[in-house]
Amino acid sequence: MTTIGDHRPEEAVLGRAKLGLIDRWDGRRILLIAHSANKWSLDRLLGGARIEALVRSLFVWNPGWEYRA
């Protein structure tokens, strides 16, 4: 069973990485290949989603997602 605490480390790492990505690649498109926990972190950091709701929701695979920072 997945718990909320399982995804906190990815969120912290991705939050720090996001700052570096924006500084280095601002205005450009990047490709990120990652675990679903990283997708949820992006949903939270860039979209304001609540991590508790993301963990409880059914994950549906998509050929890609787009985020804007």
Rank of each mutant, 00 (worst) to 15 (best):
K39Y: 09
V55S: 03
K39E: 02
D23A: 15
A49L: 05
R68M: 04
N38K: 01
K18H: 08
R50M: 05
W40V: 01
L14A: 03
I4T: 11
D43T: 00
G5I: 07
G15C: 08
D6F: 05
L19R: 12
R50T: 03
D26L: 08
R8G: 00
W65F: 13
V60N: 05
E10L: 12
N62I: 06
T2I: 14
R56G: 14
N38A: 15
A12E: 10
R28W: 01
A49C: 08
V60R: 08
N38G: 13
L14N: 00
R29E: 11
R44E: 06
D23R: 15
L42N: 00
P63E: 14
L21W: 13
D6I: 06
V13K: 07
A34P: 02
N62D: 15
L42G: 00
A69C: 13
I4S: 01
I22C: 06
E66D: 07
W61E: 10
I51G: 01
L21C: 05
S36H: 09
L58K: 12
L42R: 00
L42H: 04
G48W: 02
H35L: 12
F59L: 05
D6T: 04
L54M: 04
R24H: 14
S36D: 09
G47F: 04
L31R: 12
D6H: 15
E52W: 00
I30T: 13
G48N: 06
I4N: 02
H35F: 14
L31W: 09
G20M: 03
V55N: 04
H7Y: 08
P9Y: 11
W61P: 01
D43R: 03
R16C: 04
E10M: 15
A37N: 06
N38R: 01
K18Q: 10
R50E: 14
E66P: 00
P63G: 10
R50D: 15
W40D: 10
P9R: 12
L31S: 10
L19A: 15
V55K: 03
D23Y: 05
G27H: 10
L31H: 09
R68Q: 12
D6K: 11
F59D: 04
